[in-house]
Write a protein that binds this DNA or RNA. Structure first.
Length: 667
DNA sequence: GGTAGTTCACGTTG
DNA sequence: CCAACGTGAACTAC
């Protein structure tokens, strides 16, 4: 979602000053463990070879946790009316949650230099960051209580990296039919045990670091991020003191389709209470006014905000579900009605608090465009590929009058001219149908260190210097999973006009981390200089200097691995330069970002006894629909030399990516 | 051969 | 400590 400056636009919201009545306290108090500070290494030093997980080793929030500690440990109530994360959310060094608050929040009037605030709690900073297995947790104690954007992204990526690796190991096992494989639960359990989690302190309202529109593919992700702590139940709640009494209040709900909810309207959700459903052991029963149901009832009376997560079918992966964090709602009314089973169920009408950016609403709009019920505003061309891809790529401009990018020829793959086919002759595998993970007789799998590069869902498990896929002349079936980058576009993309960075690329569908997006198509050339001064906008060059980042799982968490850390930086035998100025695909529209959501990965496969390299793009994180896709353009080696010499390098331009860790320029 | 329904073992919280 | 809370993947039936 686009971050917007200015106020949160909630002036029209009916206000109830909950700061007077709410003394929020988790039901289960967190008891921090303080090792003696002489033994524990200061947080931020990584003693066992584990590097920080933040993409590009961004400035660590960890270095500045004391301020956060001071804030969060002295103020039990979280900001009550804050919809968005702002820049301060990224910058843990700020630690000023005041700036993050909305309009009426409790933090506003808090004196910054209160006695409590001045209390010295620096010891917290030197916390248990190494567990008994010498695994560096990488999440400080204060970050476990209260997150920020970086920590949230880091934990989400670590979860999924581990999940993918566990899936990969399961896939490779010759397990008998009927074995249920739940890598999501396993990964969640490991990270929970290792305390790789955040926002453990329950709160009403916004969860720091989680933004409206963020998506999840597993309930465990929301547990680890503190968005919704229940791994199954749809209603999460906490005990809140009201004078002398304590009562449960709802903090978040997940509408997943299990009950008879009405989730058609983007701003109104008719939510069914929990319990009473028929299962294997018993038939349907009346729901009782207890637990979550009671909490929702109390929340209706108190008028507190409730976070809402909407679950729905994933448009790409029909079998699975995607969850969208849709922001804060307020319960307007409740009633009892008869379910289809004839039993009594509770119903709660939740209404979305106005002024929040669209999230679920975006999904609803896309659904209408797809079904042709409404047309995409600003649509110039329904398919700019003229059928070259199996899925149409829309051309859209709802910003200005420009009618489209300069002319180019659409091709769906890389074009090698004869002279660049330099690699020695190679042969593919001999598999008879689809290559089976774990089958070390398959030479394509052997080339990948014995690991099948993709899970059965088709997502990339790990980055590697080179990924070896089965090629067109391998005898295995075309549906072999080891051809993930060769099946063309799988989702509905659009090329759109950005506000200030020309044309960009985004998708009507969501991507989970590791999903293949597209390859970089174009003509392979010898040198960048061949393109001319103007052309380097449309050149991909593997020999540029790219920021390194960690994406793969941490081997220390996976027993079968010992503790070998595999190299993940790309390694191409000889520099590959691709020109997409005249001939290219959607990839030529992807803009640069210093905090990108897409990365490139070299892939090699054999065709007519030649091994050819392709540049494939994969989702770095889960990417919600309509989010611009960006990757790191890297730095020119020439540019560096020129900069050293004091002159401005050719093509180096001011970066407009807007990321808090923006390097200022690129090229 | 996609889609719908059924089955199974499982994690966190209170 | 255990009950309550649904989930996600694999399988089966259509």
């Amino acid at each position: 979602m686009v971050m917007e400056g200015g106020g949160s636009g909630n002036n029209s919201t009916p206000t109830i000053d909950k700061t007077r009545v709410l003394d929020v306290k988790p039901l289960r108090a967190l008891v921090p463990v303080f090792p003696s500070s002489s033994e524990a290494p200061p947080y931020g030093t990584y003693s066992s070879g584990f590097s920080p997980f933040y993409p590009f080793s961004a400035p660590q929030g960890s270095q500045a946790t004391p301020d956060l500690n001071q804030q969060t440990h002295t103020t039990p109530a979280a900001p009550l009316r804050s919809f968005r994360a702002t820049e301060s959310n990224w910058d843990a060094s700020g630690g000023e949650y005041e700036s993050y608050d909305g309009s009426t929040g409790s933090a506003r009037g808090r004196p910054k230099s209160s006695k409590k605030r001045a209390r010295k709690i620096h010891d917290l900073d030197f916390t248990l960051s190494v567990d008994e297995n010498d695994f560096v947790v990488g999440v400080s104690l204060s970050e476990r209580d209260d997150g920020n954007r970086e920590v949230v992204h880091s934990i989400q990526m670590r979860f999924d990296a581990l999940r993918r690796r566990l899936s990969q190991l399961e896939d490779a096992k010759e397990s008998p039919a009927g074995i249920i494989r739940r890598a999501d639960l396993k990964a969640g359990n490991i990270l929970m045990t290792k305390q790789v989690r955040t926002n453990m302190r329950k709160r009403i309202g916004t969860v720091p670091g989680v933004e409206i529109g963020d998506i999840f593919f597993f309930r465990m992700e929301m547990c680890l991020l503190g968005l919704h702590a229940q791994s199954m139940a749809g209603i999460d709640y906490m005990s809140v003191r009201n004078g002398l009494e304590e009562e449960p209040l709802a903090v978040s709900i997940v509408s997943s389709g299990y009950y008879e909810d009405d989730a058609e309207d983007k701003d109104v959700l008719i939510y069914t209470g929990q319990g009473g459903a028929a299962n294997r052991d018993k038939g349907a029963t009346d729901q009782k006014l207890e637990r979550g149901n009671l909490a929702l009832e109390r929340s209706l009376r108190r008028g507190n905000e409730v976070r809402v997560v909407r679950g729905m079918k994933d448009s790409v992966n029909q079998a699975s579900k995607v969850y969208v964090y849709d922001g804060l709602y307020r319960i307007q009314e409740s009633w009892v009605e008869k379910a289809k089973s004839g039993c009594n169920i509770f119903k709660y009408k939740l209404v979305r608090i106005p002024g929040q950016p669209d999230a679920f609403g975006v999904w609803k709009s896309i659904e209408k465009w797809r079904e042709g019920l409404s047309s995409r505003a600003g649509l110039i061309l329904p398919d700019l590929t003229s059928g070259a891809e199996s899925k149409p790529v829309a051309l859209v401009n709802d910003v200005d009058e420009e009618k489209g990018p300069a002319y180019f020829t659409y091709v769906s793959t890389i074009k090698y001219s004869k002279s660049f086919k330099l690699t020695p002759p190679a042969y593919g595998c001999n598999c008879q149908n689809a290559c089976q993970p774990g089958n070390l007789n398959c030479s394509c799998i052997r080339k990948n260190e014995g690991n099948f590069p993709y899970t059965t869902n088709g997502v990339l498990v790990c980055r590697a210097p080179m990924i070896h896929e089965c090629g067109p002349t391998c005898p295995c079936f075309p549906n072999c999973k080891n051809r993930a980058s060769q099946t063309g576009l799988k989702v509905h993309m659009e090329v759109f006009k950005t506000k200030d960075r020309g044309w960009g690329l985004r998708s009507w569908d969501s991507f989970r981390a590791g999903t293949f997006i597209c390859e970089y198509a174009g003509e392979v050339i010898e040198k960048v200089s061949q393109v001319g001064e103007e052309g380097d906008d449309y050149v991909f060059d593997t020999s540029r200097v790219y920021e390194s980042f960690k994406w793969n799982y941490e081997p220390g968490l996976v027993e079968e691995d010992g503790s070998i850390e595999a190299i993940e930086e790309p390694n191409v035998p000889s520099p590959l330069v691709i020109n997409s100025k005249n001939v290219g695909n959607v990839a030529r529209f992807m803009n640069h970002s210093c905090y990108p959501n897409v990365f490139w990965q070299p892939i090699m496969y054999e065709n007519n006894r030649e091994s050819l390299i392709h540049i494939a793009f994969f989702a770095m994180r889960h990417i919600p629909p309509m989010t611009e896709l960006t990757f790191d353009y890297g730095k020119s080696r020439l540019g560096e030399a020129a900069a050293d010499g004091g002159s401005t390098s050719r093509g180096r331009r001011k970066c407009l990516c807007g990321a808090p860790i923006c390097r200022g320029n690129f090229g």
